Measured scan of single mutants.
Amino acid sequence: GGHPVTTQMVETVQNLAPNLHPEQIRYSLENTGSVEETVERYLRGDEFSFPP
């Protein structure tokens, strides 16, 4: 991942996926670069990993 992630982006995802840890959200956003894509992954039931 190398996309810039803002606190705003993390908070937006958190509102839609409250049971995800912020670190999981941030890591996913760094890989996708997209709030929409991260939320899609969540709704699909994809696994969210923590940063290594």
Rank of each mutant, 00 (worst) to 15 (best):
G1R: 14
G1V: 13
G1A: 13
G1Q: 14
G1M: 13
G1T: 12
G1C: 14
G2F: 14
G2P: 15
G2Q: 13
G2N: 13
G2K: 15
G2S: 12
G2D: 10
G2T: 14
H3Q: 10
H3N: 11
H3R: 12
H3W: 13
H3M: 10
H3G: 10
P4N: 12
P4K: 15
P4D: 12
V5P: 06
V5E: 03
V5Y: 11
V5N: 03
V5G: 02
V5H: 03
V5F: 09
V5S: 03
T6D: 07
T6Q: 04
T6R: 04
T6V: 05
T6C: 08
T6H: 06
T7G: 09
T7M: 14
T7R: 14
T7E: 14
T7I: 15
Q8R: 12
Q8W: 11
Q8C: 13
Q8T: 12
Q8E: 14
Q8S: 13
Q8Y: 10
Q8L: 13
M9F: 01
M9Y: 02
M9R: 01
M9E: 07
M9V: 02
V10D: 00
V10R: 03
V10P: 00
V10W: 05
V10K: 02
V10A: 04
V10H: 02
V10M: 14
E11D: 11
E11S: 10
E11L: 12
E11M: 13
E11K: 12
E11A: 12
E11I: 14
T12G: 06
T12N: 10
T12Q: 15
T12Y: 15
T12W: 15
T12D: 12
T12H: 14
V13H: 00
V13W: 00
V13I: 08
V13C: 07
V13T: 04
V13A: 06
V13M: 04
V13F: 00
Q14M: 14
Q14D: 00
Q14T: 07
Q14E: 04
Q14N: 06
N15F: 12
N15W: 12
N15M: 15
N15I: 14
L16Q: 09
L16Y: 11
L16N: 06
L16W: 10
L16C: 10
L16M: 12
L16S: 07
L16F: 12
A17N: 02
A17E: 01
A17K: 00
P18N: 05
P18W: 05
P18Y: 04
P18G: 06
P18H: 07
P18S: 07
P18R: 08
P18T: 07
P18V: 08
N19W: 08
N19M: 11
N19H: 12
N19I: 07
N19E: 14
N19D: 14
N19Q: 11
N19C: 15
L20C: 05
L20I: 03
L20W: 02
L20Y: 02
L20K: 00
L20A: 02
L20Q: 01
H21Q: 08
H21W: 06
H21T: 15
H21V: 07
H21G: 06
H21L: 09
P22K: 10
P22Q: 08
P22E: 11
P22T: 09
E23I: 09
E23C: 15
E23Y: 07
E23A: 14
Q24T: 01
Q24C: 08
Q24F: 01
Q24H: 02
I25R: 00
I25Y: 00
I25W: 00
I25A: 01
I25N: 02
I25T: 01
R26M: 08
R26L: 08
R26P: 02
R26K: 11
R26W: 12
R26E: 06
R26S: 06
R26Q: 08
R26A: 07
R26D: 04
Y27L: 12
Y27C: 09
Y27G: 07
Y27P: 05
Y27W: 14
S28D: 12
S28E: 06
S28W: 08
S28C: 08
S28P: 06
S28M: 14
L29M: 02
L29E: 04
L29G: 03
L29T: 03
L29C: 05
L29I: 06
L29N: 02
L29H: 02
E30G: 07
E30K: 06
E30S: 11
E30F: 08
N31L: 15
N31A: 14
N31W: 13
N31M: 15
N31G: 10
T32R: 00
T32F: 05
T32H: 04
T32K: 00
T32M: 04
G33P: 02
G33V: 03
G33L: 07
G33K: 06
G33F: 06
G33S: 05
S34W: 01
S34I: 02
S34D: 07
S34V: 02
S34N: 09
S34H: 03
S34L: 03
V35D: 01
V35W: 08
V35I: 13
V35R: 00
V35N: 01
V35M: 07
V35Q: 02
V35P: 04
V35T: 06
E36R: 11
E36A: 13
E36G: 08
E36C: 12
E37R: 09
E37V: 12
E37W: 04
E37S: 08
E37K: 12
E37Q: 10
T38N: 00
T38C: 04
T38W: 02
T38V: 07
T38H: 00
T38R: 00
T38Q: 00
T38E: 01
V39A: 05
V39K: 04
V39S: 05
V39W: 09
V39P: 01
V39F: 09
E40C: 15
E40H: 12
E40F: 12
E40Y: 12
E40D: 11
E40K: 15
E40V: 11
E40W: 09
E40Q: 14
R41Q: 10
R41N: 08
R41F: 05
R41D: 04
R41K: 11
R41S: 10
R41G: 06
R41M: 10
R41C: 06
R41Y: 05
Y42I: 06
Y42R: 01
Y42P: 01
Y42G: 02
L43F: 11
L43T: 07
L43M: 12
L43Q: 09
L43I: 10
L43R: 10
L43E: 07
L43Y: 10
R44L: 07
R44E: 05
R44M: 08
R44F: 05
R44V: 05
R44Q: 09
G45E: 03
G45M: 03
G45C: 04
G45P: 00
G45A: 03
G45I: 00
G45F: 02
G45L: 01
D46R: 02
D46Q: 08
D46A: 08
D46L: 11
D46M: 09
E47C: 13
E47I: 12
E47S: 12
E47A: 11
E47M: 10
E47T: 11
F48C: 03
F48L: 07
F48Q: 01
F48E: 01
F48M: 09
S49H: 13
S49D: 15
S49E: 15
S49G: 11
S49W: 10
S49R: 12
F50P: 03
F50V: 04
P51H: 04
P51C: 04
P51N: 04
P51G: 08
P51W: 04
P51Y: 09
P51I: 04
P51L: 04
P51S: 05
P51V: 04
P52V: 08
P52A: 09
P52E: 09
P52S: 09
P52C: 09
P52Y: 07
P52L: 09
